[in-house]
Computed example of a mutant assay.
Amino acid sequence: MPVTDVTTDPEALTMTLTAEFPASVDRLWKAFTDPAQLERFWGPPGWPATFPRFDFEVGGRADYYMTSPKGEKAGGAWEFLEIDEPRGFTVLDSFVDAEGRPAEGMPTMRVVFAFEPTETGSKLVNTSYFTSAEALEQVVAMGGVEGSTMAFNQLDRVLQSLREYAQGKGTRTEILDDTHVRITRLVEGPLDLVWRAHQEPELLQQWLLGPDGWRMSVCEVDPSVGGKYRYAWEPLEGTEGQSFGFDGETLLSEAPRRAVTTEHMTGTDFPSTLNDLNLEEEDGATLITLLIEYPDKDTRDMVLATGMTDGMEASYGRLEGVLERVG
């Protein structure tokens, strides 16, 4: 993971994050000064950022908001105080309300982004300066250390091309914490078609099958927000196993890039998970990222022990065949 250290200093009123990357200072600079690239990592997993405004000049302003899996929004704004390309820049970072005004009761920090060359690439030193110990404690209590760490740890896939990031790795499962797992898979095919393949029953039934020897016997989908879905699978003749299924509801839909659904095993009292699907396209390939939120660590471990990753890799392999035929 890129982040090597996060330190809070109540006497100096600072929080300092350090991260190292196998990329040049110029490349790191571009990632932090191009809003399209910032949107790919600034928000922590499950809270992706959107930058509708980015006036990158001294005295200019950037507005952003992060959207939760349930559609809640948390806003922020930067006022650019200093710019020293490509060594770094300084902003006044504020929490803001829906109208873009500083949020009542929330701190404003001076934040310095410093980029340094290393023997293997570059280093980021990100230092936030607070006006009081109480403001520092407030941000730490809100999960500022954990959120910043998870956000900056997403930078490795921004600094590389998607193909470089995913080369030869197939379906990857990463445990982020006790309740969150991130699954990624690069597929050859355009984003719009990959989105359709996750939404349309006639396409879903061709690839969402798990291991060989199973068929999708039920595929009912209403992809609109508040819409329900139901999937069921049954073994083909000669395959051992019992029929099973999942049902759930769409909580958020931002076509063609993001869809958040609940997932519950039909006919059981198992708790539901929250599945956050995100799609990114580059050079004709689409990176599928599925962030799964489990109710607890035991449920997470139980599901992972089923061989879920292998089943998903088989499905994604079929998906590439579907994309080739349909495209």
Rank of each mutant, 00 (worst) to 15 (best):
H180D: 06
H180L: 12
H180W: 11
H180T: 06
V181K: 03
V181M: 07
V181A: 12
V181I: 09
V181N: 09
V181T: 14
R182D: 06
R182T: 04
I183K: 13
I183A: 11
I183V: 14
I183Y: 13
I183H: 14
I183G: 12
I183E: 13
I183T: 15
T184L: 04
T184A: 03
T184Y: 00
T184K: 04
T184V: 06
T184R: 14
T184S: 13
R185I: 07
R185W: 03
R185L: 04
R185M: 01
R185S: 01
L186K: 06
L186F: 09
L186C: 04
L186N: 07
V187Y: 06
V187W: 08
E188T: 12
E188D: 12
E188G: 11
E188N: 13
G189M: 03
G189I: 00
G189W: 05
P190S: 07
P190K: 09
P190F: 01
P190R: 12
P190L: 05
P190Y: 06
L191F: 02
L191W: 03
D192G: 02
D192K: 06
D192F: 01
D192N: 06
L193K: 13
L193Q: 11
L193P: 02
L193R: 14
L193Y: 03
V194S: 06
V194E: 05
V194M: 05
V194G: 08
W195I: 05
R196L: 09
R196V: 00
R196P: 00
R196M: 07
R196N: 07
A197N: 08
A197R: 10
A197W: 03
A197H: 09
A197E: 04
H198F: 14
H198E: 10
H198S: 09
H198R: 13
Q199A: 15
Q199Y: 05
Q199L: 12
Q199S: 15
Q199G: 08
E200C: 12
E200Q: 15
E200L: 14
P201A: 11
P201V: 03
E202C: 02
E202T: 11
E202N: 09
E202V: 10
L203E: 06
L203N: 08
L203S: 10
L203R: 13
L204C: 07
L204H: 04
L204Q: 13
L204R: 07
L204Y: 02
Q205V: 12
Q205T: 15
Q205N: 12
Q205Y: 10
Q205E: 14
Q205M: 14
Q206N: 10
Q206H: 12
Q206Y: 07
Q206I: 05
Q206V: 02
Q206K: 15
W207L: 01
W207D: 04
W207E: 04
W207I: 00
W207P: 01
W207G: 00
W207R: 03
W207S: 00
L208P: 02
L208Y: 15
L208A: 11
L208V: 02
L208S: 11
L209I: 09
L209V: 05
